[in-house]
Write a protein that binds this DNA or RNA. Structure first.
Lengths: 222, 222, 222, 222
DNA sequence: TATGAATGAGCCTTCATTCAT
DNA sequence: TATGAATGAAGGCTCATTCAT
C-alpha cells in the first residue's frame, strides 16, 4: 500500500495520484539529509527529482510541506519495525528488547533515515506541529513499547523495579545519540560498529557498571 | 579583509577590548537559542544587543564568527566545570563521577546554553570546522575526563572492566539527550526534573537493569 | 554554485539560448558607459533592461560577469574590423593602414563603445584578468596587424626602417587618447571631427613635423 | 611655498594650518594610486596616514574632497616642470621641445603621479569639476606651451606648417598613453624604457614614417 | 587635535514562489 | 502535467560619515 495513495489525500499538502510525489520525496530525502532543511533549495530537490522547480509545486504547496510530507512518510517506517519487534515477544522481555533494539539500529543503516531525527531536532522550533507529530508517532510509541517490555520484565522478576521510562531512555539515548554523533562528526569515526555498540550498551545497561560483589553480599545489611 | 582589525588580534574572531563584544555575544546567545543559526539574522542580534547591524561587524567579522565566538565563550565554561570536578577526585572515582555529572547537568539550567549543542548537532553539516572545534574542545575533553575516572574505578576494582569510552557514552547520552529533548519538544514536559534524572540514570547505570540474583547464582532464588 | 546553469554552457558567463542575455548586455552597455563599473548598480542594469534585478542573475552569475561578457561581446567587434581591414591589403600597406585606422575610428561613433576602453583602464587594477583579456584580444592583435603592415611597408621601401611597435603606438595613441579625452572632457569639444583628426594625424605621422629641406640637402636654401 | 598654505583656504575643503593635511594627501596618493578612487576606503587612507578615520574629516569634508585636493596639489607639479622647460627656450624650439618632453616624462618616474591622469580619466564622469580643473590647469597649459613652441618652430621655418594642436597631441599622446598602459597592464612590460620611448617617438615624430625620397623628388633618386 | 564607537543607507546576491505557455 | 522565465522580499556585509569624549 502506497502511503501516498490518492484515496487518502494528505492533510495539508495536496498531491496528484501518480508516483511523482513519492519520487519527489525520495529526492527530497537525499537532499535534506545531505544539506539540512534551511540549506536545501527547491532547485536542489527539483534537480534531484529530475523535474523543474515549478513542477515540485504541482505536488507540494511549499518547501515546508515537502519537508513535512517527507517526515510523515519516512519516520513511521523506522518506528514500526521497532514496534513490531517489541510487541511480538512480551513473553521473553529480554530477548524482545534486544531484538527490537537491534532492528531499530539496523534501520539506520540507510544514513538518509538517520538524518531525519537530526533535522527534526534542528527544525523543531520552526515546525512545532511536525515536532509534535514526531513525538507522538515515534517517540511516544517507541517509549510505550519499551515500557511495556520493561514492565513485563519487572513483573516477571527479571528486571529491577526501576522507573520504566528512565530505563527506556537510558537504553535508547546512547544509540540515538550515536546516530547524531556520526552525522555531526563524520571525521571522528567511532571505534565500534553500530552493531557492536548496540551489544555493548545493552550488556552494560543490563549488568551495570559497578562490580556485582560490591552490591551483593554485604549480607550485613540492616 | 578586515580593515577594522583590533589592536590586540583575538584568536580568530577579532574583538575590541571593551565589554561590547560580550554584550553582543550575550544577545547572540538569546537569539541563536531561540531561532537556531540559519534563521537568525544579524539584525536580530543587533537589535537584541541594542546596536546597529553594522556595529556587530566592528567586533565580529561575520555571522559565523559571532557563533564561533559564542561557542568558544560558553561551551568552555560548561566543559571546564566538568573537567575540574572530574579531575579533583580521582581517588574516589564514584564520587567524582557523580559530582561531575551533577555539575555538568546544572550548567544547563540556563536553557540558552543547552541550545548550543543542539545547534551544533543540527548545523554541523554547514559548519564542519565548528563541529570539529566543538568535538575537540568539548567532547574529547569531556570524554577524556570521564575515561580517566572510569579507568581509575576499574583499576580500584570498583567498576567492571568495561570499555571506558562506551561507558562514558552510556552515562552521558541520556542526559545530553534529555537536554535536546526538552528543547525540541517543550510541550512534552518530562516527568522528572533534571536533577532527579541525573540521579536515576546514575543509579541505573551503576547497578544495571537486571536483577542481581538472576545474573549471579542462577536458580538459588527463593 | 550556479544552480541555474543553462543547457548550453557559455564560455565563461552562462546564458540561456534566448535573446535576453543580449538585451541585458545592451542595457548594461548603456549604464556602464554612463556610470563606470563601480557606480553601476545591478538595479540600474535591470531597470534599463526592463527586468528585475534577480532576472539578471538568471543570465549572468555576477556583476563582474556581466561586465566581462559585455567586454567580450563588444570589444572583439571593434578589433575584428580593424584586423580584417589591415590584413586585406598587405600589398598596399599605406592604403591598408589608412583604411584600417579609419574603420577603427569609425567604430567609436557609438560613444558607448568608446566607454569600454575607459572603463578597462579604470578597473584594470580590480580586474587583472579582464585587463589581460583585453590586452590579449585587442591590443596585441591590433598591434600585430599594424606591425605586419609596417613591416610590409618597410620591406617595400615605402617606410623608414623604424621599430614597428613604436610606430604602431605613435599612430594609434593619439586617436585612442582622443577617444578617452572626449569622454572625460565633453565640455571641451575638440576643434576637429574624429575623421579629420584621423587624417591629420595620419599625414603628420607619415611626413613628420620637421621641414624636409632642413633634413635633406642643407645649404640649398634661398 | 606650501600649496596648502593657511593663507589661502581651499575653495571647498577646509584645512587646519598644520602639515597634517599634506601628510593625509601623501597617504591618499599612495592608496588612490594603488586602488583607484572607488575602491579606496577612508579607512585605507587613515591607516596609511597613521591617523584615525575620523581625523581625516578634520581636514577634508569628504572622500571626494580628499581626492580633489590631492589632484589639485599634485597635478600642478608635473605640469609646471613641463611649462618652465618649454618656455625657457623659445629661441630653440626643437631643443626646448625635447627637453620639456623629457622632463615631463621623467616626472612620472614616481609611478604614483602617473596614477593621477589615469584616475581622472576614469573618474571624470563623477567629478566633472575636477576634470575641468585638470583640463584647465594641466591640459590647456601644457598644450599652450607646446603650441607656442610649435608655432615658434613653424615661424622659424624649422617645422612644417601643421596645425599646432594636432602636433601637440600627436607628440604627447603616445607618451601619455604609455604611462596609462604601464599601469593597466603591468604584466606586459614594454620592450623599451620610458626614456628610450621618448627619444624614439620624438625622432619618428619629427622625421615621419615615410621614406623622404618617396615624398620629395619622386624618381630623381639615384 | 584626535579617536573609538556607532550607524544609515546601500548593494550584491539568493531563493521560495508564481505564472504564462 | 510540466517548465522557462521572472520577481519580491529578504539577508549579509560594506562604507562614508557623525559624534561624544
Amino acid at each position: 500500500m502506497n502511503v501516498n495513495a490518492p484515496l487518502v489525500p494528505g492533510p495539508k499538502w495536496t498531491r496528484k495520484p501518480q508516483a511523482r510525489p513519492d519520487e519527489v520525496l525520495e529526492a527530497a530525502l537525499d537532499v535534506f539529509a545531505a544539506n539540512g532543511f534551511a540549506a536545501t533549495r527547491m532547485d536542489d530537490i527539483a534537480k534531484a527529482a529530475g523535474l523543474s522547480k515549478a513542477a515540485i509545486y504541482l505536488y507540494f504547496p511549499s518547501k515546508d510541506d515537502v519537508f513535512k510530507a517527507l517526515v510523515e512518510q519516512r519516520i513511521g517506517v523506522v518506528q514500526s519495525h521497532f514496534d513490531a519487534a517489541a510487541k511480538d515477544q512480551k513473553h521473553d522481555p529480554l530477548a524482545g528488547l534486544q531484538r527490537a533494539i537491534r532492528l531499530w539500529a539496523n534501520s539506520f543503516h540507510d544514513l538518509r533515515l538517520a538524518a531525519l531525527p537530526r533535522i527534526i531536532l534542528a527544525e523543531a522550533l520552526r515546525f512545532p506541529e511536525l515536532a509534535d507529530f514526531y513525538h507522538r508517532t515515534v517517540i511516544e510509541r517507541t517509549q510505550a513499547s519499551l515500557i511495556e517490555l520493561f514492565q513485563a520484565g519487572i513483573d516477571k522478576g527479571l528486571f529491577r523495579p526501576v522507573e520504566p521510562l528512565v530505563a527506556a531512555r537510558a537504553l535508547m539515548s546512547p544509540l540515538m545519540f550515536e546516530i547524531l554523533r556520526r552525522q555531526a562528526f563524520p571525521a571522528h569515526i567511532p571505534p565500534l560498529s553500530m552493531d557492536e555498540l548496540v551489544d555493548s550498551i545493552f550488556d552494560l545497561f543490563l549488568k551495570g557498571l559497578a562490580m556485582p560483589e560490591v552490591e551483593n553480599h554485604s549480607g550485613v545489611a540492616p
